[in-house]
């Protein structure tokens, strides 16, 4: 089964790194993955899109996609900007937002059928764990914990191990903690 995941964030929040870490986690479960940015010039603060594919079989398809099983939003203000209108969330798909509690209306998103919405305050988790780079809370690793809670295609243990492998033990540990906390603190807001 192939899962296609879209990340919306801002340059500097680590969306692309998150997609790479997910591939590393897939390796531990003998699964396959792809993680990549939208192929353009990235700048700090500008809206950034990253993509991930996870499958139990080798993945042959390449490049960008505009229909996703799961969409993760690192900054909920991006929803108001209308960015999510550009992609289609599959029927019974998942939307995860970094927010204290989010008001998501169907006007802001493009859905095939119904969508399950989740929220987690990843910014607070990042701040409390000191995950600040150049003044920005880096929420990517927390959001990874939230992803595998809402869509259990990979275990949280694999994600935590991948975070340490990818970021190294020094900064990896607090990021691992962020994933673990978001995994526990994710809230289901219901169907939209």
């Amino acid at each position: 089964m192939l899962y296609e995941i879209l990340f919306y964030g801002r340059g500097g929040q680590g969306a692309v790194t998150a997609s790479h870490i997910l591939v590393q986690a897939a390796i531990y479960e003998n699964k396959y993955g792809q993680g990549f940015p939208f192929f353009s010039a990235e700048r700090r603060g500008a809206p950034v899109t990253a993509y991930a594919r996870i499958s139990d079989k080798p993945i042959l398809r390449r490049g960008v996609f505009s229909k996703a099983d799961l969409v993760v939003v690192f900054d909920h203000r991006l929803i108001q900007l209308g960015l999510l209108k550009k992609v289609l969330i599959k029927n019974n798909g998942i939307l995860i937002v970094n927010a204290r509690g989010a008001e998501i209306s169907r006007n802001h998103i493009n859905v095939e059928g119904k969508v399950h919405v989740y929220a987690v305050d990843a910014t607070k988790i990042a701040e409390e764990l000191g995950l600040i780079v150049a003044g920005w809370p880096v929420v990517n690793t927390a959001m990874l914990g939230a992803i595998v809670r809402a869509l259990p295609i990979l275990s949280i243990q694999s994600v935590e191990k991948a975070i340490i492998e990818y970021l190294g033990p020094r900064i990896g540990e607090s990021n691992r903690e962020a994933a673990s906390r978001a995994y526990k603190e994710l809230v289901y807001l219901g169907e939209v």
Partner: peptide, 11 residues
């Protein structure tokens, strides 16, 4: 191919 492979993480 640039990006499609060059910037895409795979196992």
């Amino acid at each position: 191919e640039g990006f499609i492979l060059s910037h895409t993480a795979m196992p």
